[in-house]
């Protein structure tokens, strides 16, 4: 119904037809939505992709039912510290992490379902002043944290009983690491973006810091989302959360940048600008999957970009229930999760 009431044509060449509403999850608790994500859940021999929703004091797991409906399976109740982020673990079943804190992450917890005991559990993974966290393949979690002048970049392995005793540390750069991305096609490589706009590369096996490369002063506050290695170059998808509409393309929302790790030289490959009509500086909060990016703009509109074309390909304006607050890609097919502040999550097929 909501989809039918949206204007069919938003801008020249941009139609909302490229996003089709598939289903809606409505949380009756009335709690304010903080984040949304997905996790694989396997119980009684059945493996399903479920939706995870977070509000400040609890996290809920939703499984698909018949006729595009969703049912809440379990709610983990958290303590006094508010939930601020869901940290999905790629290619992992029955496990998801959450970050809790006030303005910064102060704690990471593991939420899990144990098929052996058929019970839902939670355990503490890490505490500290945590600046960035990312779930890695093979049930691992990387985080950067600060204690005075010291920065620690740590990888922990996650088990059903919580974190394993042995963590691995990566050599920290001097600058604070604000985001991480695994490198596709290169199993032991990890990249990060820093507070002073550099890209750093680590060897995950040895913990070595291999290279630090500057992104460029003309593009402040870059956040890395994805990276892949090809033909001797490292391609990194960066977002610029404080993008500004500009005819000269000087302040794009997303960029694909090619780095030569041997020389630390870089070259922009494709830039994706803000959709027309979004004037003024925008704060982008988004997600990247393969070559697609999605972000909520300051106006409460969700924009989708094709990063290879360098174009915004779909817009989802605020619905009847209000502005969009969150957006994430599901790991399978082109499915976009879109959350409103009242806890309603809509699933769109792109």
């Amino acid at each position: 119904d909501v989809a039918e009431q949206l204007p069919p044509v938003l801008h020249d060449g941009l139609t909302e037809e490229s996003l089709q509403l598939v289903s809606e999850l409505k949380d009756s608790s009335g709690s304010c939505a903080v984040d949304v994500s997905t996790m694989w859940w396997e119980a009684a021999g059945c493996r399903e992709l479920c939706v995870v929703t977070a509000c400040e004091s609890s996290v809920s797991l939703w499984k698909p039912l018949a006729s595009d409906r969703w049912g809440k399976v379990h709610t983990w109740q958290l303590g006094q510290i508010p939930v601020i982020q869901i940290v999905p673990l790629p290619d992992t079943c029955n496990l998801v992490c959450i970050a809790l804190g006030e303005l910064e992450i102060g704690e990471i917890r593991l939420l899990l379902y144990s098929s052996e005991s058929d019970s839902f559990k939670q355990s503490l993974v890490k505490t500290g002043t945590i600046k960035a966290v990312l779930g890695l393949k093979d049930r691992r979690l990387v985080s950067s944290s600060r204690s005075g002048q010291e920065q620690q970049v740590e990888i922990v392995s996650l088990l059903e009983t919580g974190r394993s005793k042995d963590g691995q540390t990566l050599m920290p750069p001097e600058e604070t690491v604000l985001a991480f991305a695994e490198v596709e096609g290169m199993r032991d490589a990890l990249v990060g973006t820093t507070a002073l706009n550099s890209i750093v590369i680590w060897n995950l096996k040895t913990g070595q810091l291999l290279k630090k490369m500057h992104v460029g002063y003309s593009y402040p506050a870059s956040i890395c989302h994805r990276a892949y290695s090809d033909s001797g170059l490292l391609f990194v998808v960066l977002s610029h959360p404080h993008a500004k509409e500009s005819e000269s393309c000087g302040n794009p929302a997303f960029r694909v940048v090619a780095f030569n790790p041997k020389t630390a030289r870089s070259r922009g490959v494709v830039s994706s600008s803000l959709p027309p009509g979004h004037t003024g500086r925008q704060y982008l909060e988004g997600d990247v999957k393969d070559t697609l990016a999605a972000a909520v703009l300051t106006s409460g509109t969700i924009a989708v970009w094709d990063l290879l074309l360098g174009q915004c390909t779909a817009l989802l304006p605020p619905g009847l229930a209000g502005s969009w607050a969150l957006t994430r890609w599901a790991p399978t097919s082109a499915c976009l999760l879109a959350g409103q502040q009242d806890g309603t999550v809509c699933l769109y097929r792109y």
């Binding site: 050599m171 290169m186 032991d188 490589a189 590369i201 060897n203 040895t206 070595q208 810091l209 291999l210 290279k211 290695s229 033909s231 001797g232 170059l233 490292l234 090619a258 780095f259 030569n260 790790p261 041997k262 020389t263 030289r265 870089s266 070259r267 490959v269």
Partner: peptide, 23 residues
Amino acid sequence: CSESDLGPISFNWFDELSAEAPP
């Protein structure tokens, strides 16, 4: 991207940087 923009490219950059970087 041409090689002249980015300098000499090595297809084996990860192993080469790992050999050069401090342990």
